[in-house]
Amino acid sequence: MVSVNQERTPRKRTYLLCPPEHFAVEYAINPWMDTDEPVDVELAVKQWESLRETLSRLGHTVHVLPPRAGLPDMVFAANGAFVVDGTAYGARFKHEQRAAEAAGHRDFYESSGWRFVAPSEVNEGEGDFAYLPRAYGGLILAGYGFRTEPAAHAEAQEMLNHPVVSLRLVDPRFYHLDTALAVLDDERVTYFPGAFSAAAQKVLAQLFPDAVLADEVDAFAFGLNLVSDGRHVVLNAEASGMAAKVAAAGYVPVPVDLSELKKGGGSVKCCVAELRH
């Protein structure tokens, strides 16, 4: 059990974000999207700017991916690739509405000098992959059930040279792993058990006996769609219960309001891809 007084150590991170200049809800590919609900693009951009400024203020490097017209979900930059040890394993989106986003991400990684691996299997980047560098020698957690195909887990394992643990998601409201599980530091996670199959719950309990367990209220507030540097936990401002839980575990919650982007089915983590050298 973690002592509340334990000092958590932040580690400088490098992130990739994409501004929501073309954000809209023009189609519904997850249960959170409602095409009848209006979107305030100006507010979405303002909230995104606050997120970017927050990450920069915490000492992290933030790169900006140019948005492309006609791709309203490109703001959810986490879905474009999964980067470990300098290698970017590219995305291959399940839904045709998002397929063209992959090329924009590939252009960024290749022009920036990263080793880019084009995928053969359907996967949605960090939406369904999480990495813990100090857990079991470097462990990848991978979700499936709604977007990423299980075959992509094996492909990622081969491309990134780290073991992959597959976890089945069973609730369509938690269609990506990053809506149901988050990495708090290099070896600890937080997750909502109800989003996973019974078998996946057992695996998570065995691997992470000291995990911070979230409840349904936390999960519905997108409280698990967070970004942590090992000390500061940047999370959706609506998720006050989740903020209290991470604070009790010794972390420092940093709330940001992303209520407008939530209309697209994402929050903090969906907007942030981590670039791991």
Score class of each variant (00 low, 15 high):
1 M>F: 12
1 M>P: 14
3 S>F: 08
3 S>Q: 10
4 V>D: 02
4 V>T: 05
4 V>E: 04
6 Q>C: 07
7 E>P: 00
7 E>R: 11
8 R>Y: 12
13 R>S: 15
15 Y>M: 09
18 C>L: 10
22 H>T: 10
23 F>L: 04
23 F>N: 01
23 F>V: 02
24 A>F: 05
25 V>I: 12
30 N>I: 05
31 P>F: 08
32 W>E: 09
35 T>D: 04
36 D>I: 04
36 D>F: 12
37 E>D: 13
37 E>W: 11
38 P>G: 11
42 E>W: 05
42 E>I: 08
42 E>Y: 06
43 L>N: 08
45 V>R: 12
45 V>D: 02
46 K>R: 15
47 Q>L: 13
52 R>K: 15
53 E>S: 15
53 E>N: 14
55 L>K: 09
56 S>I: 14
59 G>H: 13
61 T>Q: 13
62 V>L: 12
63 H>R: 13
65 L>V: 10
65 L>D: 03
70 G>H: 08
71 L>M: 12
72 P>R: 05
75 V>D: 05
87 T>R: 09
87 T>G: 09
90 G>W: 14
90 G>I: 11
93 F>D: 02
96 E>R: 11
97 Q>W: 09
97 Q>R: 13
98 R>A: 10
99 A>C: 01
101 E>A: 04
101 E>R: 08
101 E>Y: 13
105 H>L: 11
107 D>G: 06
109 Y>V: 01
111 S>R: 14
111 S>D: 12
113 G>F: 04
115 R>F: 01
118 A>C: 04
121 E>R: 13
123 N>D: 02
124 E>G: 08
128 D>H: 06
131 Y>G: 01
132 L>C: 07
135 A>R: 13
136 Y>R: 14
139 L>S: 06
140 I>T: 00
142 A>V: 00
145 G>M: 06
149 E>R: 09
158 E>V: 01
158 E>T: 07
158 E>Q: 11
160 L>I: 00
160 L>T: 02
160 L>W: 02
162 H>R: 15
164 V>G: 03
164 V>A: 02
169 L>P: 01
170 V>K: 08
171 D>K: 06
175 Y>F: 15
175 Y>R: 01
179 T>G: 04
181 L>K: 02
182 A>V: 07
183 V>N: 01
184 L>E: 03
185 D>T: 07
190 T>A: 15
197 S>T: 04
198 A>Q: 14
198 A>E: 15
199 A>N: 07
204 L>T: 07
206 Q>I: 07
207 L>C: 08
209 P>R: 11
210 D>H: 14
215 D>K: 08
217 V>C: 09
217 V>Y: 01
220 F>E: 15
224 L>W: 14
225 N>M: 10
226 L>D: 08
226 L>N: 10
227 V>F: 14
227 V>W: 14
228 S>N: 10
230 G>F: 15
232 H>F: 15
233 V>T: 12
237 A>G: 09
241 G>P: 08
241 G>A: 12
244 A>R: 13
245 K>S: 03
245 K>V: 03
246 V>S: 11
247 A>C: 10
250 G>C: 08
250 G>W: 10
251 Y>S: 06
252 V>K: 04
253 P>Q: 07
263 K>H: 10
268 V>D: 03
269 K>G: 00
270 C>T: 00
271 C>R: 00
272 V>N: 02
272 V>E: 00
272 V>T: 11
273 A>P: 00
273 A>Y: 00
274 E>H: 01
275 L>T: 00
275 L>S: 01
